[in-house]
Write a protein that binds this DNA or RNA. Structure first.
Length: 262
DNA sequence: ATGACACAGAAACTGTGA
C-alpha cells in the first residue's frame, strides 16, 4: 500500500496536478492539507473518476483537510478529541478544519495541518503548541494499532531541516518548545518514517514562492509521516517528490510518500 | 534545470501562509 501526504495549497487551484500525480504515482491513499474550501466546493468528480473515495473537512477558505482513498474509507472523524480551538479576541473560538481521521485499508490515517504559529508572541503560537500536545495525548491511545499521523507539522525538527534558522517567517518552526512538541510523538510510540529512509540534510518538503527559494533550494522540511510501531515495522520506503514543486501552478509543498507492506 | 508570491473572498483590497 502506498500512502502519501501533500499540502496542496487549494485543491481547486491544484486539482488537475493533484489527480495527475495520484495516478502517475500509483498512490492508494492521499492525505491533503490546505484544501481551502468547503466540502460542497471540492472538485470531487476527477478524484472519483480516478477511482478514489473522498472524506472532506473544510469550514471556509482557510485550512481544510481531506483524504482520498482507493482502498476503502470508513470511520471518518472531523477532529480529534480535545482538539484545541482558536479565535481572534472578541470572537468565539472555533475548532478549525485541521485534522481528519479515517480507516483506509486497515490503517488509521490522520491528515493533519498543524497551526503555523505566526509569531512567538502571537496567540497562534500557543495554539500550535497546544494542538501538538493534545494530538500527542490522543495518539497515545492509537499507538497499539497501525496508525499514520501525516501532514504539515509546521516544525523543522533539526537545523539541517531549514535553509536558515534566522528566517523570521519561520521563527515558530525552530524553537526548542516546538521541536520538543514534535519529538514527543517518539516517546508516545511513533517513528517519523521519512527520517528513517531519507536522513540526508537539507532535504526539504516546502519552498516559499518568494525570492527564488526553490531554484536556490532554500526550503524547509516540515511535512512528515509518523507511524505507530505496528505500522512502522511494515514500512519499506519513503520518497519526497521534489519534482512536484517545479513549473507553473505548483503548490509550495511537495508530496511525501510511504510504502507499506501488507 | 527548478526562476523572482499565491490563494480566496470581497471588493479593487485584505487575511493568511511560512
Amino acid at each position: 500500500m502506498r500512502l502519501a501526504t501533500w499540502n496542496v495549497n487549494s485543491v481547486r487551484a491544484r486539482c488537475d496536478r493533484v489527480v495527475d500525480w495520484l495516478e502517475r504515482s500509483d498512490t492508494d491513499v492521499l492525505a491533503m492539507q490546505e484544501i481551502k474550501c468547503k466540502p460542497e466546493q471540492f472538485p470531487r468528480e476527477p478524484f472519483e473518476a480516478a477511482g478514489y473515495e473522498l472524506a472532506i473537512h473544510g469550514l471556509n477558505q482557510w485550512n481544510g483537510v481531506a483524504i482520498a482513498s482507493r482502498v476503502g474509507l470508513k470511520d471518518v472523524q472531523t477532529s480529534f478529541p480535545h482538539q484545541p480551538s482558536f479565535g481572534k479576541p472578541g470572537q468565539d473560538p472555533v475548532v478549525e478544519a485541521r485534522a481528519l481521521g479515517a480507516t483506509c485499508g486497515g490503517i488509521n490515517v490522520w491528515s493533519l495541518y498543524v497551526p503555523n504559529g505566526r509569531g512567538l508572541n502571537d496567540p497562534h503560537y500557543a495554539y500550535k503548541l497546544a494542538f501538538l500536545e493534545q494530538l500527542r495525548e490522543q495518539a497515545l491511545g492509537w499507538a497499539d494499532a497501525p496508525t499514520a499521523l501525516v501532514g504539515d507539522f509546521n516544525v523543522a525538527p533539526r537545523t539541517a531541516d531549514i535553509w536558515s534558522e534566522e528566517d523570521s517567517e519561520a521563527e515558530t518552526h525552530v524553537t526548542d518548545e516546538a521541536r520538543a512538541a514534535f519529538h514527543a510523538f517518539e516517546a508516545a510510540g511513533y517513528e517519523e518514517l521519512s527520517r528513517r529512509f531519507i536522513p540526508a540534510d537539507n532535504t526539504y518538503t516546502f519552498w516559499d514562492y518568494k525570492q527564488l527559494r526553490f531554484p536556490k533550494n532554500e526550503g524547509m522540511r516540515i511535512d512528515f509521516i509518523y507511524g505507530s510501531a505496528p505500522l512502522a515495522q511494515r514500512a519499506t520506503a519513503v520518497t519526497i517528490d521534489r519534482n512536484e514543486r517545479k513549473g507553473k501552478g505548483a503548490s509550495d509543498h511537495v508530496p511525501v510518500v510511504l510504502d507499506i507492506e501488507s
